[in-house]
């Protein structure tokens, strides 16, 4: 099963402040550990929301609304994510606990969310088959 570890944004990360060298090194060591364990699928940091864009559909069937960042609710924003492939929810939590406190200042927060597998989305066999074919075609992530 796959889990996404979401690192929540803080005022500093939103302000574009660079993390300390110690933190960068600790993060690199952590990523190395994930790689060596063969669980890392992808991991990326995000630019602050100042150059983010939001597209919303306030009316079903209506036109989308496009808004440019920055967005204010720093605590709810995302600063980065790491996707891992593990055997259980517990293993995912264990890995998340090994991640260094991503921000310091008492602001660090990581959210762990399980990724949907095709089976979770629908029980329709035709759709499952289609989704399976598409996953193979479009994502080609599983090996």
């Amino acid at each position: 099963m796959r889990f996404m570890m979401i690192v929540k944004a803080t005022k500093d990360s939103e302000a574009g402040a660079m993390p300390s060298t110690e933190l960068i090194e600790a993060m690199m060591r952590y990523n190395e550990e994930l790689v060596n364990a063969g669980v890392l699928v992808a991991g990326d940091g995000l630019h602050p929301s100042s150059n983010a864009i939001r597209i919303s559909y306030p009316e079903p069937g209506g036109k989308p609304k496009v808004i440019d960042g920055p967005f204010t609710e720093a605590k709810e924003m995302i600063a980065g994510f790491t996707m891992i492939e593990v055997k259980s929810r517990e293993e995912a939590i264990e890995w998340a606990l090994r991640m260094p406190d991503p921000h310091g200042f008492g602001e660090g927060q990581i959210e762990l969310r399980q990724v949907f597998e095709a089976m979770d989305l629908t029980q329709d066999p035709e759709l499952i088959a289609k989704e399976a074919a598409l996953r193979e075609r479009a994502e080609r992530l599983k090996n």
Partner: peptide
Amino acid sequence: RALWDRLLIRRGLAA
């Protein structure tokens, strides 16, 4: 090797 892009490696292995 820790800096190799795992996402691209996975995509490569899948291809």
